[in-house]
Nucleic acid binder design. Sequence first.
RNA 1: CGGGGUGUAGCACAGUCCGGUUAGUGUGCCUGCUUUGGGAGCAGGAGGUCGCAGGUUCGAAUCCUGCCACCCCGACCA
Length: 491
Amino acid sequence: MAKVLTSRKENYAQWYNDLVIKAGLAENSAVRGCMVIKPYGYAIWEKMQAELDRMFKETGHENAYFPLFIPKSFFSKEADHVEGFAKECAVVTHYRLKNKDDGQGVEVDPAAKLEEELIVRPTSETIIWNTYKNWIQSYRDLPILVNQWANVVRWEMRTRLFLRTAEFLWQEGHTAHATRKEAEEETRQMIDIYADFAQNYMALPVIQGHKSEGERFAGALDTLAIEALMQDGKALQAGTSHFLGQNFAKAFDVTFTDKTGKLDHVWATSWGVSTRLMGALIMGHSDDNGLVLPPKLAPHQVVIVPIYKNDEQYDTVCQKGEEIRKALLKKGISVKFDKRDTQKPGWKFAEYELKGVPIRLALGMRDIENGTIEVARRDTMKKEIMPVEGLPEKISALLDDIQEGIYNKALKFRDDNIRYVDTWDEFINTLENKGGFIMAHWDGTAETEERIQNETKASIRVIPIDSRQEEGKCIYTGKPSKQRVLFARAY
RNA sequence: CGGGGUGUAGCACAGUCCGGUUAGUGUGCCUGCUUUGGGAGCAGGAGGUCGCAGGUUCGAAUCCUGCCACCCCGACCA
């Protein structure tokens, strides 16, 4: 078989890029730094969206939509926020084009200069809090639990498909609460939902924790994140949930009257995940044959490939294949029956492996005579012949088994790659030779964190929520520390 | 914005140093026959402003000048 992909071990970045393109998920567009998400990639994203949206609604959230453009003045009201985003924003300065005087195309009409420039949203806190000001007067108006599915633009210098693109799709939740406690609980609840989604749907184990001060969201008092480990030993931030305190309420003058008649600023959170999750899904599970999709997110859980030598056999096999497809559908399994006579079976096998379809069924005359079918699972690449009798139940169970299997495989990889390190030499050595997550002591200062990052390119991914208190010494300065934090090189 | 590199068929590239038939290879595409239980074989075919502009020359993908675009490494990136 002709190798379509480079090997993971040879060149991980190249392998990833090839895979995204060849599996038909996405490609670079004519616009620098922007990505075209192709139908198959978008279908996976839609599955993710559907599950996340359900989880948000089950916890009382509602969807809404706010403008793409943010007046510059809104954006500058929160000092830390503007500091964090200013450098990477696209700015609209004019609202009209005109024909060139020489008739050769169009140019920006200088007469159409905007009084105030508009920023293409890199995130929506400012426009939303400007709006919330009008929505909130009393404690009776609270909480506001709103989510938005949208695109945002961050003008990154260097981009990679799904992991960092100039424009990307995401959801951003923006909530307003009467008390600090309630907002903090919301922050925590949402990171739990993200972790739940990552583990139970994406089959990717994650570590939850607080970001250090230096890595916090611009304008937040606390940032919670989930971090996943990719197969090349680098970390990927897969989702964040921010406790914003009263910063945005103060910046946008959002106050409410509480039960006792006292005026106070509203407490806020924001949280989001993006199409970057697609990158996590791809890098977390795939192998040299292509994608490996968890059954819960695969656009097609099963594909049926007919095998035949002539028209007569084609008809027979198609008829039986159709019966099987319907039986599986009845069981709630999503099935594609690839009846195309323009591609051959071997080609189809390779294609669906590249696309990560969890189960492939091959049906030929031999099977029809014996009342059997060939069942191949993508995660282990194992094939077996099964009776068609009782197939839906077996496939259903097999899908659960695959979902669990790929989670366990990723979990074992993750756990095998968490290392506890106590000295600087050991830290450097582990980073260089093994990669992965490193649990080590840190003196808690931003200065030390920055120095470690400058010297090693490793950053503090999170201060894990569940890590136990333990006396130790900072690996860099030797100063006392009470808790290990999670270091890694990251995407 | 610095350092390096590349522009030749839908895609990937050779040819450029040392100018010389009708610009080539792989892959993909189209047609036909044979195939079909792991990305088929053979035969035929279509497809090119050689990034753009100017110059040198009998003659330029190739040499010279200018411009443009893109890629990689930095800077940037909760």
